[in-house]
Amino acid sequence: MEHVDVTGEVCPRPALIVRRRLSALDTGDTLVVQGDYPPAEQNLRRTCANHGFAVEGGSEDNDDGDRFELRITVTEDAALAEE
């Protein structure tokens, strides 16, 4: 399981960081993302759902203010658009 901390980063940096990390993973691998910027959590959830990644967790799972932790799993349907 890979981990990345985007705490202190604001959009669009968290999405770019996570995208880079996800592109190196294989089907079935999970990336745990920690951060503290609510718009980044929403953006990551939306982007991952649109590209076929499974997303669990989030800020609703804790009482630590704006902090969030997402577990993003690469599914067989997951695909990132070519840059």
Rank of each mutant, 00 (worst) to 15 (best):
E2F: 10
H3T: 15
H3C: 04
H3R: 13
D5N: 15
D5S: 15
V6N: 05
V6G: 03
G8H: 06
G8A: 06
V10H: 12
C11A: 15
C11I: 12
C11M: 15
P14A: 07
A15I: 09
L16Q: 15
V18Y: 10
V18R: 11
V18T: 10
V18S: 08
R19M: 09
R19D: 06
L22I: 05
L22E: 00
S23N: 14
L25P: 03
L25E: 07
L25S: 07
G28E: 09
G28L: 13
G28F: 11
D29G: 10
V33D: 00
G35N: 07
G35H: 08
D36H: 07
P38Y: 00
P39K: 05
A40H: 06
A40P: 04
E41Y: 03
E41K: 01
L44R: 02
R46Q: 11
T47I: 12
T47S: 12
T47D: 15
T47C: 06
C48W: 00
C48S: 14
A49Q: 14
N50V: 04
H51R: 14
H51L: 14
G52P: 09
G52L: 08
F53P: 04
F53T: 12
A54Y: 03
V55S: 08
V55P: 03
G57N: 01
G58L: 00
G58K: 01
S59F: 00
E60Q: 13
G65C: 05
D66T: 13
D66I: 05
D66L: 09
R67Y: 01
E69G: 01
E69W: 01
L70K: 01
L70G: 01
L70E: 00
R71M: 08
R71Q: 15
R71E: 09
I72S: 06
T73F: 02
V74A: 05
T75Y: 04
T75E: 10
T75L: 09
E76H: 10
A78H: 08
A79P: 02
A79C: 08
A79W: 06
A79G: 11
A81I: 08
A81S: 13
A81C: 04
E82Q: 11
